[in-house]
């Protein structure tokens, strides 16, 4: 097991390095530096500014310096918010993004696997067709359409739920109520995908020989599903954890914008538009690390659950 973890780490770290390198050199390939758009600075001041931000070194040296700082958690200062460092900005937005993202992930996994499981056990019946039709719609209607539609239905036409999230000054009840719509809007497409995955793998598992054996020895349907089928059927879901995280992070870009949430993704979009390179880099590195780590965790869970996976 330990060797397996080491081996997976040995591929995860180069992946991360590639991401950081690609993002870094893409940023530096941009025409014009961060100081060219402002008033024409006297050459001496510009040289000093560049020296301060290490911009006068050769590119490879700059990259190594950036890497060295990043490993210690220092992503440099924000170029548009001069008195904030990138780490401070990220730490400020992290609780918001983490709350929304994690809740959506949990909601999507539970509701998605429940719906998919039910559809599989009622294969080719009305319930199955119903769930799959809704799932198909969920895949074709993206977050940024679902979110305004939810806002319209629950916030504008009926005054049921608040349409902008993260209200901290009106008490906990109002705070949680304000999170309902963003979490649902973020989770819906994932619920659709996960339910389709779960249905497919559940149908396959229920047809396998060992399930027939379990039936033959007289186990009840509930016992078969709980003790034998679920454990195998859930494997494709676990390996979908990484891609699901990537999709949720991407989705949070629009969800945080629509609901006005002060999370990391919103900083990312505004920083990208304002060409705040250091913030963009910091967010990309953070998100890439998250995805790589979740892929790693997913692989480890599969290795634990699936006896067919060899730990070499």
């Amino acid at each position: 097991m330990f060797a397996y973890i080491l081996k997976r780490l040995a591929t995860a770290i180069p992946t991360l390095l590639i991401i950081v390198a690609v993002a870094f050199f893409m940023m530096r390939a941009a025409p014009g530096g961060p100081f060219t758009s402002e008033r024409n600075l006297p050459p001496a001041i510009e040289a000093n500014l560049k020296a301060k931000y290490n911009l006068d070194d050769p590119l490879p040296i700059q990259f190594l310096k950036y890497l060295g700082n990043a490993i210690q958690g220092d992503f440099g200062p924000s170029l548009t918010n001069r008195d904030m460092s990138v780490s401070e900005l990220i730490l400020q937005g992290l609780p918001v993004s983490l709350t929304i993202g994690l809740s959506s992930l949990i909601l999507a996994v539970f509701v998605g696997s429940l719906l998919g499981g039910i559809a599989a056990l009622r294969q080719n019946k009305a319930t199955d067709y119903g769930v799959m039709a809704v799932a198909m719609a969920g895949i074709c209607i993206p977050n940024f359409v679902v979110a305004p539609l939810l806002t319209l239905t629950f916030g504008v036409w009926n005054d049921l739920l608040p349409t902008s999230g993260w209200v901290e000054n009106k008490g906990p009840a109002e705070f949680y109520r304000s999170l309902i719509l963003p979490i649902i809007a973020l989770a819906l497409p994932q619920i659709a995908i996960i339910s389709r995955l779960m249905r497919g793998s559940m149908i396959e598992v229920m047809r396998s020989n060992y399930i027939r054996t379990a039936k033959a020895k007289g186990l009840s349907a509930a016992q078969i599903i709980r003790k034998h089928a679920l454990r195998a059927a859930i494997l494709p879901l676990v390996s979908y954890l990484g891609p699901a995280t990537a999709a949720l992070l991407t989705g949070s870009l629009v969800i945080e914008k629509i609901f006005g949430l002060p999370g990391i993704s919103r900083y990312f979009v505004t920083s990208a538009v304002n060409r705040d390179y250091t913030v963009v880099m910091g967010v990309v590195i953070l998100y890439a690390t998250l995805i790589v780590v979740l892929n790693l965790i997913a692989d480890l869970i599969i290795a634990l659950l699936d006896p067919k996976v060899k730990l070499t």
Partner: peptide, 19 residues
Amino acid sequence: DILYSLPFIFFVIILMVVF
């Protein structure tokens, strides 16, 4: 495999911003 695990849309965003 490595590219699969990348948050690609973020790179597209950087591209669109940079160029």
